[in-house]
Design a binder for these strands. Sequence first.
DNA 1: ACATCTATCTTTAGTCT
DNA 2: TAGACTAAAGATAGATG
Lengths: 156, 156
Amino acid sequence: MTRKKVKHVYIADVTARKATFKKRKKGIIKKVNELTILCGIQACALIASPFDSKIEVWPDSEGTRHIIERYQSTSIIDRSKNVSQESFIVHRVAKAQDQVKKKHRENREKEVTLTIFQYLKSGIIPQQLNFEELKDLERLIEKNIKQVESRIEELS
Amino acid sequence: MTRKKVKHVYIADVTARKATFKKRKKGIIKKVNELTILCGIQACALIASPFDSKIEVWPDSEGTRHIIERYQSTSIIDRSKNVSQESFIVHRVAKAQDQVKKKHRENREKEVTLTIFQYLKSGIIPQQLNFEELKDLERLIEKNIKQVESRIEELS
DNA sequence: ACATCTATCTTTAGTCT
DNA sequence: TAGACTAAAGATAGATG
């Protein structure tokens, strides 16, 4: 009587879709939970609801945040294979500091680099950035500084 | 012959753990994929490997990034229930701009706020921040500005 | 709408190659 | 180390209350 051949296509019927979503979400979360226990690992799932804009996560928001941060760090490292992220950052900062000492003058380029360094240390932006990302960030900070300066000028 | 009662505890044997991890990870990803199709939603899974530091994600890094960003936005909204995030940001920026025009002088407080606004617009930091997070960010930016200024002074 | 049931489908632990 | 196999365990579609 209970026929089942799940066609893997979008479920048009709202009631059926909602029921399936609820059951399967529960199943997935159970499986993810089991995997973390059986294998002693971290894992998380983020699932958007079809019925409201909320995204459900497993485990709690704290655990999810941790693994997301861990993922973001490592994925960025992977993207910049050509240079070790650690030596890259260390070298960049050391170079910026040297330049500051040598040139002995106000220099926006170094201001930007130092700002980036502070943000990296603080964790506001990922601890590792590849060259392209760093360049984007530099351009953004430079733009900000210019805007702030022009606004200040405008008011003087 | 094939006896199975899965005890839900850590699998001590390395070989068995690896085999189970591989099988179950595949299963979870399949289930998540099916859920997204059946219900027409976004979902992702992040799974740390027990054998190297890499975190595997489903779907690709691009899709994962999107849903993470969506999650981070909404979760932060939820945390600052007391005030709508949109009106909060809009109000804060408008106020800062008003102050700039009225006081007609260089003012670090506004510089900080404008910098935050730029970062918010750019997506470098989450689009929504609650009061505590905004305060932390303000303190950080202020500290950065002071450090940069003192370094510039030191060199003049 | 939700809870329970259960026949059937799907996953997977243990085993072998 | 990685597939393939298979029977038991587990998940769930559709039905019913």
